[in-house]
Amino acid sequence: MLINAKHAFNQHSETVLIEKVKSGDQQAYAALYTLHVKRVYALCLRLLADREHAEDATQEVFVQLWHKIASFEGQSQFSTWLHSVTSNIAISYLRKHKNWLQKVVSFEQSGMDEQSADDCQGLNGLDKLVLRLPERARMVFVLHAIEGYRHEEIATMLGMAVGSSKSQFHRARQLLKEWYENEQA
């Protein structure tokens, strides 16, 4: 009962903050940022597998969010909506930052190296393996297994066929399994 009341209070105060932000209150926006930055950064890090890029993308999310928030009508939870905004911005961030060679030959970027992934604090064993996955397999795995998007939605977001999304997910699972079993051996 107490937990429900606390949750309701938090929801109410978040709604008040959002309304203030919509009217241009930057202090309220700073408070909203504090509430959500860790979730946004975690998602950006998982999708981009690079700490600096994840920080840049997180900043981009909050810069764009300031202008997009007027379109949030409260039909879904704010955190759900924010996750969707974050996923889309992280994906477009990745597209924008591909170099010309990657664009021309559709060269897929590999994931984080094992040492860098191990150095990421706060990540569990699976996350550290996920960061090592190649780009497409990683994004599909994060969006499907962690964020709960359907393959149809992922296909639209990433501009790939539904079948490709499924095969990338399978590929991700195979690699994770192989790495995990090697670690256990």
Partner: peptide, 15 residues
């Protein structure tokens, strides 16, 4: 791991 997955991670610098 998916059940225990941290939904929050702090960035290393103040953004």
């Amino acid at each position: 791991s998916l059940n225990r997955s941290q939904t929050e991670l702090p960035p290393q610098k103040d953004l």
